[in-house]
Structures are given as C-alpha cells and as structure tokens.
Design a protein around this nucleic acid. Structure first.
Lengths: 337, 337
DNA sequence: TTGAAAGCGTTACCAC
DNA sequence: GTGGTAACGCTTTCAA
C-alpha cells in the first residue's frame, strides 16, 4: 500500500484539503504552500488510490454517449457487447452509457446526432465518425465544452481528440494482400468487392490488396466493384462479373455484401473461393458452405470495451493517451472460428 | 446506483452488521432474521458495491503465487506482462503476485515448488501444471486448505480447481491442420516437430494435424520428430530428416525448436516452408527470413491477465466459474504480426 | 487561502 | 445473536 493523502498532509504540515488543492491545480492555494506540498508528493512518490477516489466520487455519474452508424450492420453487435460489459465492470465507478444508432453514412444525420450531445447531459462521447470536415468541426467544438471524445472503429482528425480505438486499416489491407498471395497458386483473375471507396477503411483495404499483389505472377486482372453494403447489389454485380469473366477464381469482400457474393459464387459450377473481413452471421454461413476460405477479424468486442475503459481512465484517473490504440488483426479459418 | 447495505438494513429493520452476517452465511445469526433479511435483499435486488468493499478490505493484501515452467521459454514473457498489468490494475484492491519460475518439466521440481506454497503465505496459486497424478493430489490438498487455484496455459484435473485459463489445444491442433491443407498445393511429405509427446498440448496439436490431413491427396508421408524443446536437437534432427527425404517441403513446428528448424531448412537449396506456433523472437526472425509462412497464436498476454482477474473475481467478489476460459486462437502472417 | 468534517459502501471489531 | 461504530482513501462542502 503506497502513501496516502492523509500521510502527505501530516508530512507537509497542512490539511488534507490543501493537499487535494495542490494536486488538482486549484487556484485557491498559496503558491508556496503548493510548492511545498508537491515536493512531498514527489519525494514520497504519491499515487492516488482510485478505489478511494471512486467511492468518494460515486455520487456523481459519468455519462457516456455512443454514436454509431450501425443500423443493419451486425458487426456492431459485438462492439456493443464490449461496451455493455465495460459498463457493467465500471458500474460501481458511476460509468453509464447511452447508445444512439444511425443508419447509413449521411453527414447531416451524424451532425444532428452530435448536436444533441451537450456537456450538461454527457461527460463523454464515443463515435464512429464520418470522415468529413463538418464532423471534425462539430467534434472539436464539443471537446472545447469539456466532452471527452473517442473515435472508435474508424478514425478522424480533430482538435482535442482523446484517442482512436480500432484496427490499423493499412495493416488490415496488407494482411488481405498477404493472404491472397498465400492462397492463390494458379493463375487467375480476382474480383474485389467493397462498400464504398469513399469510406477510408474500405479504400485502404483495397489499396493494401493491390499493393501486395504486385509482382505475383499468379494474379492476373483485378476487378473492383462497389455495392454500398447492399446485399442485392452485391449479388447482382458479382454475378455479372463472374458471367463476364470465367478467369475469376478468387473473390475478396473487403466490406459487407458477403451474402450476395456467397450466393453468386454458389451458382457457378466451378470452384471460386472467398476471403472476407469480420465474422458476422453471413460470414459464418459462408464458412459452413465452404465458400469462404478465411476471414480477417479486428476484435469488435475489444474495440467497444477498450473505448469505454479509455473514457474511464481519462475522466477518472486523468490518464492522457499519447497514441492511438490499435486492436489486433487476426486471420480466422474454419477450424479456429 | 443500486440499493446499499445501509438501506437494506433500514428496510429489514436490523443493523448493517446483521445484513452483513446474513449475506455471508455467518453462523452467528438467527435463522428467522437471516430469512427476513435475505427476502429484502432478494426483493430489492441488492448487489454489493465492490468499490466500497475494496476500500474496506484494502488493509489486507491478496497474495497470488505463480508457478510456471518457463525458464528459457520466451513465450512466457508476454504471459508475465499480462500478469504484471493485471497486478497494477488491481493494486488498489490489494492484489499482489509473486512469480516462481522452474526449468524443464520435472514433476519433483514442481511438487517441491507447490509444497512451499501454503495458505498462510498465499491466498491463491496460478500454475502451469505438469499432467501428473502427484501434482493433482498436491493441488487438491492445497485447495482444501483454502488456496484458490487456477491452471494456466496447460490444464490438469483435480478436485476444487477454480478454472483453466488457456487455449483449446484440440482447436489449435485442428487449426494447424486446416492451415496446412490450405497452404500445401503440390504433393509433398511433411515433417512435424514437437517438444514431447508426453506434454498434453503438444500431443493434441500433432493429433489435430494428422486428423485434418487425412484425405488430402497432396500430403504424402508425415514424419514426426521430438526435440524436447532443445534447439540443438531440433536442428540436428530436422537436418537429418531433410537430408534423408527430399520430398519434405513443409515443416510444422508444434512447440519450441523453431530456431533449429529455421536454420536446418535454410541450408537446403530448395524451398521449404514452416508453419509454427506462438510469436517468440525466434519466430519473428523466421518470418523475416521468409522461412515461416504463418504462425498460430494463443494470446499469452490475455492468459496472464485473465488468470489474475479470475483470482480477483473469485476472492473478492465471490465469482464461481462454471466453465474454463479459452483464449482466442488466431493465425498470423507476416503482414499482421 | 486554509482547516475541519461529513460522507461514499463496505467490513471488522467490540460491547451488549 | 445483535447493534453500534471506527476504519479504508478520497472528494466536497462549509466555516473560518
């Protein structure tokens, strides 16, 4: 057990309240007193006991708003599980969360959701931001009024951001590329499907695959289609591509649209393999039908849990994050799902 | 904030002390009083506030002994990191750990280490047990004197075990098999190296690979060698095998001995690929030399962290674990290390 | 600008 | 068997 505020107070010859004021940079303290106290704090290497702090603070709740573009996207089920588990783990510390789900990637929708968050209602915001200047501005304004903001799953730059919690999309792009190189042994063309090249993560994944495939003699043409995460569009476009080009033997689904791709490839009478991202119900079905060979996962549960823990660490223990927090990128095949 | 002991006491018309006695099944309480209190507890869904509890208990430390067969095994570096991080996270709750490292897998050595743990010194033991009856007995005896025991990384059966924290070795065996099937496209023989077939985990991995490779026409003979986790032995034996059989184009290292295998394969003038387990420095070097294609990881950091958290949950919050806790099994290639 | 004291929810101990 | 009360380390409020 390390030294306590009470002991520091005795040693410095002041009261506990004064030590407290010195520690939290209160203006209501004499400069000399503060200096003296901080010297003792330094000398005895005082570290606050956060259990004591939590108990004292427990009257006041810490409210976290969560804004996600997740309606219809089952990937987020696990993210929410992580958030809910963290909420429960830190319940006794006064942490509580409220989730606001949005459908699609409309900037105005997200702006409107952000505008409803203000510092009297919420101490913190966890958001999957759309990469748009207006969003950056809105978030920067919010931080100025004292809301601690975390970008989760997808990143954005703005003044005052606490940190980003999610995967490194460049790495994930290189991984899909490396995996493709490893799995393709006969010369063929590749079909690459993505949600939208406007989404940063999607774009980076496509880029990674293209870069990694340079110099691989087995990889012929790479055709890219966008389906805007719409299964029907995905199905139709994949079907068309396969019909037009019988040299395609490998499909990479870098975003949603997995079900459509599985369906379209199933209707072809030769073998076409799929490599996908994440581990949704549709991906599982693809594995069961032996259409999907492998999938690249980015720890959605961890993303949710860690985001909440970061808020707790910051608001409660004053932790400042020097760098972003990247969740692990792992490859899953049927045997280790 | 949920209901507190104080409020329960008022509602039940007793004192806080009595509520406490009712909750912890104290014998010093009238049966009727107890019943009445527990009814109120039930009705208002009382849940203990573990921050309050932690503070009250913080005078007393919870001491955890850790016994690992880890000398010379760098895999455990990350396990220890997880343990140390958890220790820090739960420091204010009074958790502290002491690590005892053993070299090799000698049953008597481990028994002697266990015999030094007794309930006056330690409240809990985290151990990587050798799968031996004498160890089972010793651990069962320890639990009887009130020490909470967790099997970490490798499992053992004994009376009173809290739980096992580690990977599912059967799954990890199937995974190496599935991966081999995916990566081998030309008929060849396989060399499988392992530490010792006496070690449960090693054996299960070999078994998994053998099972999964049945029916794969590209896989010819499978040769198995044991090196007892000795690099020199690994090198010599792999070298011999490769010299004797030029059809071997694929080496699976299911335990240690990675450095030896990398060295031996490097001295051959045709391409031989390696798939390994875990992510030690030696494995990284194998990746950098482009000898290792993929490795299967089992989250050592998590194993350490979770083991300590389990002890905390049990000793502090009375959590009983209904089942073992399996850490994730993931495939890593050069791009997502 | 400082000190003193009251809590936060729980446990542990002592007195009845 | 039961009640009362003093901790545990910290924050917050009130009074000086």
């Amino acid at each position: 057990m390390s030294i306590t505020i009470k002991e520091i107070a005795v040693i410095a010859g002041v009261s506990r309240g004064t030590v407290d004021r010195a520690l939290r940079n209160s203006p209501k303290i004499n400069v000399d007193t503060k200096k003296k106290v901080l010297e003792v704090v330094e000398e005895y290497n005082y570290k606050p006991n956060y259990v004591g702090r939590a108990l004292a603070k427990s009257k006041r709740q810490i409210r976290i708003a969560v804004i996600t573009n997740s309606v219809g996207n089952t990937y987020f089920n696990e993210v929410f599980e992580g958030i809910k588990t963290a909420e429960k783990d830190f319940e006794n510390f006064g942490i509580c969360t409220t989730i606001f789900e949005l459908k699609g990637f409309d900037v105005d929708d997200q702006l409107s959701a952000i505008s409803k968050i203000n510092c009297t209602d919420f101490d913190s915001l966890i958001i999957t931001p759309i990469n748009d200047k207006r969003i950056s501005c809105a978030l920067a304004n919010l931080t100025e009024s004292g809301v601690a903001i975390i970008a989760m799953n997808t990143d954005i730059e703005f003044e005052g951001k606490l940190c980003y919690v999610g995967c490194d999309y460049n790495k994930s792009g290189r991984t899909i590329g490396g995996l493709a190189n490893m799995l393709i042994h006969e010369k063929c063309d590749i079909l690459l499907t993505t949600g939208s090249m406007e989404v940063m993560g999607h774009k980076q994944r496509v880029k990674g695959l293209l870069e990694m495939s340079k110099g691989n003699k087995n990889i012929g043409n790479i055709e890219i289609i966008e389906h805007n995460d719409d299964e029907a569009v995905s199905y139709t476009k994949v079907k068309e591509s396969l019909a037009a080009n019988s040299k395609i033997r490998f499909v990479c689904t870098t975003a949603g649209g997995v079900e459509g791709a599985v369906k379209a490839t199933s209707e072809i009478d030769y073998n076409i393999h799929i490599v996908s991202f994440d581990l949704t119900q549709k991906v599982l079905e693809g594995f069961n039908q032996d259409k999907i060979l492998a999938t690249i996962v980015q720890q959605p549960y961890d993303q949710g849990y860690i985001a909440v823990k970061c808020v707790y660490d910051n608001l409660f223990n004053g932790v400042v994050f020097g760098k972003d927090i990247y969740t692990d990128i792992a490859i899953k095949i049927k045997q280790n799902l």
